[in-house]
């Protein structure tokens, strides 16, 4: 047994420790407040092991959700895990006996630690990744159990603790908003859900909201495939795109809107003249000629 690899894996996992323990404690307290004790907290953190889903799960447990709603909600909330797995297919290909657990434990945080692909040694790569994953889950389980125990003895009222779930998603939403230039998916999520809430009511809006979001995003994709239309039509997505052109750092004097296979996915690479960089979306839209071509051709 090479302890060096375990030590390196531990050091790699340290940044996740605080986050997982604290969020786990929040979850444990919340679950306790909902009437489910330490064994539930342990079972959920071991078997589900998905932070935001467990928070939502508390609500599903207490809110009387059906099996179908639970399955669909889990599917939508955790759908991003599909994409973590997709990007790890090659890396985990030859992981052997470590493979099942590596896949099972691929959470947001573990993915963010392992997705850069750096490992201390190629021979020990899978064992290293295994221990990073295992350390991360141990922090999460520890937090969840600790929270449940704390929740039973806390000397102050935990009324309002449920806002920690809201805060978790608002913080992700804000961070996502600040790091992304394309706000259309986020707005689609907000507006479709609001609409669904108004139409279907608080008890049964979740499934319609998920269907509507998927449908709208699918339609928007169809639209943005047509690169030239995207740049000139003045649709919502075109405005988002041109806004990005105006603020683009890659301003090089020539005006070019490239829309290719990437733009089939809704992102469009845009550059606009240096001094013109401050132009408003509207004027950019009027004056910037757009060229649409496949990304493959570009490279």
């Amino acid at each position: 047994m090479d302890h060096q690899v375990v030590r390196q894996a531990f050091l790699k996992s340290v940044p996740v420790m605080a986050g997982y323990v604290v969020l786990g404690i929040g979850f444990g307290i919340l679950l306790r407040a909902a009437g489910y004790g330490v064994l539930w907290s342990l079972a959920m953190s071991v078997c589900i092991y998905a932070g935001s889903m467990q928070y939502v799960g508390v609500d599903l447990l207490t809110g009387g959700a059906s099996v179908l709603t639970t399955a669909l909600t889990t599917f939508m909330v955790n759908a991003r895990h599909l994409f973590y797995s997709i990007s790890m297919i090659d890396r985990y290909k030859d992981a052997g006996r470590y493979k099942p657990y590596l896949i099972f434990a691929l959470t947001d945080e573990t993915y963010s630690l392992l997705s850069d692909g750096t490992v201390p040694s190629e021979q020990e790569a899978h064992r290293y990744r295994f221990f990073v994953s295992l350390f991360n889950q141990s922090y999460w389980v520890t937090g969840c159990v600790l929270g449940s125990l704390l929740g039973a003895v806390l000397p102050f009222s935990t009324k309002g603790i449920e806002f920690s779930m809201t805060a978790l998603f608002i913080a992700s939403f804000t961070e996502q908003w600040l790091t992304s230039h394309d706000h259309i998916p986020a707005l689609t999520g907000l507006l479709c859900t609001l609409l669904s809430l108004v139409v279907f009511g608080a008890e049964r809006f979740l499934i319609p909201a998920m269907l509507l979001i998927t449908a709208v995003l699918t339609l928007l994709r169809g639209k943005s495939v047509q690169g030239t239309v995207l740049c000139t039509a003045g649709s919502e997505s075109a405005q988002g795109t041109v806004l990005r052109a105006a603020g683009s750092e890659s301003a090089q004097g020539t005006v070019l809107c490239a829309a290719g296979s990437e733009s089939a996915q809704g992102t469009v690479l845009c550059a606009t003249g240096g001094e013109e960089g401050q132009r408003t979306a509207e004027s950019a839209q009027r004056t910037v000629p757009c060229v649409s071509h496949e990304r493959e051709e570009e490279s």
Binding site: M76, F173, P185, L190
Partner: peptide, 13 residues
């Protein structure tokens, strides 16, 4: 690419 931010928006609501 687009589903995760949309679902976070959904969860906020």
């Amino acid at each position: 690419r687009v589903l995760p931010p949309a679902i976070i928006g959904m969860l906020v609501i």
